Amino acid sequence: MKYWNRSLTVLSLSVMLIVAGCGSNASTGNNAAGSNAAGNNTAANNGESAAPGASPTTPVKETLEIRTSFYPMYEFTRHVAGDLAHVENLVPAGMEPHDWEPTAQDMASISKADVLIYNGAGMEGWVDQVVDSATGTGLKSVEASHGIEIMEGAEEESEHGEETHEDGEHAHDEGEHEESGHDHDHGGLDPHVWLSPALAIQEVRNIEKGLSEAAPQYKEQFKTNADAYVSELEALDKEYAEALKDSKRKDFITQHAAFGYLAKEYGLTQVPIAGLSPEQEPSAAQMAGIVKFAKEHNVKTIFFETLVSSKVADTIAKEIGAKSAVLNPIEGLTDDEIAAGLDYIGVMHQNLEALKAALNE
Rank of each mutant, 00 (worst) to 15 (best):
residue 338 I to M: 03
residue 180 S to R: 13
residue 227 D to F: 09
residue 99 D to Y: 05
residue 240 Y to A: 04
residue 76 F to L: 09
residue 63 T to Q: 15
residue 210 G to W: 12
residue 228 A to H: 13
residue 361 E to V: 12
residue 226 A to D: 06
residue 140 K to F: 04
residue 289 G to L: 08
residue 305 E to H: 04
residue 233 L to N: 04
residue 307 L to S: 05
residue 82 G to Y: 09
residue 46 N to M: 11
residue 180 S to N: 11
residue 309 S to V: 04
residue 311 K to E: 15
residue 170 H to V: 13
residue 18 I to F: 12
residue 93 A to Y: 02
residue 342 L to E: 14
residue 177 H to C: 00
residue 145 S to T: 11
residue 36 N to K: 09
residue 220 E to V: 15
residue 94 G to K: 00
residue 312 V to R: 10
residue 97 P to D: 00
residue 151 M to D: 13
residue 326 V to Q: 06
residue 13 L to C: 02
residue 105 Q to K: 09
residue 137 T to E: 14
residue 73 M to H: 01
residue 41 N to H: 08
residue 21 G to E: 13
residue 128 D to Y: 05
residue 208 E to I: 03
residue 319 E to N: 05
residue 344 Y to W: 12
residue 151 M to A: 14
residue 235 A to W: 06
residue 228 A to D: 15
residue 224 T to Y: 03
residue 37 A to V: 13
residue 167 D to H: 08
residue 140 K to S: 13
residue 303 F to Q: 03
residue 279 E to V: 04
residue 170 H to W: 09
residue 190 D to N: 13
residue 314 D to H: 10
residue 71 Y to L: 02
residue 270 Q to P: 02
residue 59 P to G: 11
residue 121 A to L: 05
residue 225 N to S: 05
residue 162 E to G: 05
residue 129 Q to H: 04
residue 330 I to Q: 03
residue 310 S to V: 02
residue 12 S to R: 09
residue 256 H to P: 07
residue 111 S to M: 15
residue 348 M to S: 10
residue 273 I to K: 01
residue 121 A to M: 06
residue 12 S to W: 07
residue 320 I to D: 03
residue 29 G to M: 13
residue 27 S to A: 15
residue 179 E to N: 07
residue 254 T to D: 14
residue 231 S to I: 07
residue 204 V to N: 08
residue 148 I to W: 10
residue 201 I to L: 04
residue 100 W to Q: 00
residue 128 D to H: 07
residue 314 D to G: 07
residue 224 T to I: 06
residue 353 E to Y: 06
residue 171 A to D: 14
residue 246 D to E: 15
residue 196 S to M: 05
residue 162 E to N: 08
residue 252 F to R: 07
residue 331 E to Y: 04
residue 5 N to G: 00
residue 69 S to Y: 08
